[in-house]
Write a protein that binds this DNA or RNA. Sequence first.
DNA 1: TAACTGTCTATTGTCGATAAAAGACAATAA
DNA 2: TTATTGTCTTTTATCGACAATAGACAGTTA
Lengths: 292, 292
Amino acid sequence: MARQNTVFKDAFNRCLLQLADTASLPSEPELGNVLGVSRTTVRAILARMEELGLIRWNKRAKTVLRQPKAEDYFPEDETNSLSTIIERSFMRRILAGGAEAGMQINELEIARDIGIGTTSVREFLIRFSRFGLIEKRPNSHWVLKGFTREFALELTEVREMFELRSAASFVTLPPEHPAWADLQRVEAIHHELLADIDNRYAEFSELDERFHLLVHRSSANRFIVDFYDIIAIVFHYHYQWNKTNARQRNARALEEHLDYIAALRSRDAEKVEAACRRHLRSARETLLQSIP
Amino acid sequence: MARQNTVFKDAFNRCLLQLADTASLPSEPELGNVLGVSRTTVRAILARMEELGLIRWNKRAKTVLRQPKAEDYFPEDETNSLSTIIERSFMRRILAGGAEAGMQINELEIARDIGIGTTSVREFLIRFSRFGLIEKRPNSHWVLKGFTREFALELTEVREMFELRSAASFVTLPPEHPAWADLQRVEAIHHELLADIDNRYAEFSELDERFHLLVHRSSANRFIVDFYDIIAIVFHYHYQWNKTNARQRNARALEEHLDYIAALRSRDAEKVEAACRRHLRSARETLLQSIP
DNA sequence: TAACTGTCTATTGTCGATAAAAGACAATAA
DNA sequence: TTATTGTCTTTTATCGACAATAGACAGTTA
């Protein structure tokens, strides 16, 4: 069991969706492009599809024989990559469960807990360490620094610097820059969510990430863009286990975003700064309130 | 050969220095503290010292019998941790050797090259990825993004934001804060180096890191402090292989630092900002000039 | 009785092995 | 003659194993 074939299973499931409205599938390299996998994996998928009687496969001819049924798909939890599994398990440990700052983190224990080898856990922790929530004692354990008030303040301090600068550079983008079109699409979704906020407020989290990432990208600075990962993951998991007032909180943020977007589209640097500051201030308040 | 005993060898060498001016060694826990290793390693060191006839060891009594000779020490290259070895080798590859942007990075090749396993190489690359110079294609290779002009500009943009803010918070530190004493010591070393610049200009690199780290620390923000790692490692390796005008360059930087330090000690926020900006501008110019 | 030592166990750091996935190259088909 | 397929090789992701190191606990010494 050196490596699970999760890439194959995930790509297979996605490929079943492709089957929907064609009588035959494209060439192997093209399928590989669409699914983001190599030809080796494409051929494994095709072989399995043939085996299940979904297609007839003879060299270039890949004729669809029938539409996929529910039981043709692999179970979703078999398609998660190991690093996703570790991330979820670890975030639950430190954000949802009561984890005090200063606690030791034990690689072996985590590995045994999830039922995997230590290598992947180590790699995850190393990747995770850039979020500033854990720290390594060389030749020894990791220390949890905790999702504390100080953490939130340090995080938002940098976030505010970066976002203000990014927003300022957004207005200097030439009108033909694709970011303007993206902004319009994002704005439209804001209106959609607001119109049906009672049912769709939970979709805000994803939209929030999309909008702010769009702003950060306009800085054209990899360090600024990469830093947004930290914000995104912290907000994502934190609010996943902190749903108090979610509907109201998200509605307010949507309104603030719309002001912010309007300011960006006005291309007036002062308005942008004002709207951006307003939103950042209230985002910070909201975050701080949710930390005991 | 699961793991080299480099921790032991390095601590042993450092322990030999401790032998200099005492007739007997302290307790095992205390030695462990001084050397930064566990008692297990301390006992291994004591055992070896006894074997070499350096001490007589009987429970609490650890009598020094003779001073260490050159051949008692382990060769220095046996004391480098594996991650240090990989780091050096990798930095030489990408900064010294002609490495073009877009080049693929092959874990197995690096591992074979150095003569180690792939695990450590992977871990190094993951840790290194936060420097923004490489990027992972999932399930596939890493891509070298190159030490380019854009990289330098993005790096210095963030650096300038962070350092200006840190310098501003430095002047608000209370007079009894240890940073002021550190600053005084750092200032003194600046004068020492300047007084003998022809012989000691090479020591600037280390002093530079110490000074700027001191400034960044006053931000009390882990993300700002951690970011300085990136600056430090990039400058360290870059100037290690780029010695043109080193003497003149360093002398000028020392002068700028002294202005900057004087401004900090004046506690005048405007002066600080001006001096900081001047130094950052010239540091950026110098860096950009050294990139083709 | 408080710190130190002897001894033992648990965890980390690193390797080699292996299934999965990527990718190179020649043969084939349109 | 250009893209596609068949086949084969290389690399990545992951595990289990094991030496080095850290750390726990009980017995010992001052």
